[in-house]
Design a protein around this nucleic acid. Structure first.
Lengths: 124, 124
DNA sequence: CATCGTGTATTAACTAGTTAGTACACAATG
DNA sequence: CATTGTGTACTAACTAGTTAATACACGATG
């Protein structure tokens, strides 16, 4: 588990994205406990405050919830959970389309490129 | 011509990207004069220093060159010019593949999404 | 020769993000 | 009852990016 692949987004945003991905792929189940702020900060070699910021925002988004001093847990709200994946997919596609259209890449060329690179990238 | 569509990248990076797109699509020809720092800053409502930073980096990358106090111009180096488009295309594809694979989107689904959204997005 | 528009450089101040260090309330564990 | 691990909160300092305000050398234009 690495975070700093992407330098352009703030660390706390990348942490949020990591959890969104885990939720979207079912690797984190509804109601499941997640690592504490201090734990995750330790694992990712980031500051506990930065971890706290990510968790706080995820709580505001309804992705996780916290009761008392218990470890925070993944929400059990079905709507939110299914929306997470939709959001990530739509974001990726929208960004990609925007990028290739701004440099005049045709639909055919784009599809070809995706096909060519989809399996290639797994080898990295 | 707008710049701040994207909040995650620094403004000077977005300015560089704008010029790369113009070069990649042939809207800026080799040797062609580009807007002065003050001009572009005015057009984009950004600070002249930020424009200068973008231009300076583009100069370091060999994208543009400056002689005396003349307006900067697009490079005439064929290799650099063709590489610009390749770089932008590869970057877009790589990022997209990475995003969709991290949320378990299959190749078929991805291709379908691109096809569905390619023309839709033009309507924005 | 004065003016204007180039590129270039410098200094100061502000914001967002990050790190560091510390602190406190609370519940479970020993 | 002391310790440990939760969440939460606050202050201080640092960095990168941005803006603002000047300043200067140089060449063309009037």
């Amino acid at each position: 588990m690495k975070i700093n692949v992407n330098k352009r987004d703030p660390v706390y945003v990348q942490v949020m994205r990591y959890f969104k991905e885990q939720i979207a792929t079912g690797q984190l189940a509804p109601g499941e406990e997640i690592a504490s702020r201090r734990e995750i900060a330790n694992q990712l070699k980031i500051n506990p405050n930065t971890a706290q910021r990510a968790y706080k925002e995820m709580e505001e988004l309804g992705l996780i919830f916290t009761e008392g001093n218990m470890p925070s847990r993944i929400t059990m709200d079905e709507t939110i959970l299914t929306d997470v994946r939709k959001e990530l997919v739509l974001e990726a596609v929208t960004e990609f389309i925007h990028s290739i259209q701004s440099i005049d890449v045709s639909l055919e060329e784009a599809v070809e490129l995706v096909k060519e690179n989809y399996n290639r990238k797994r080898a990295d």
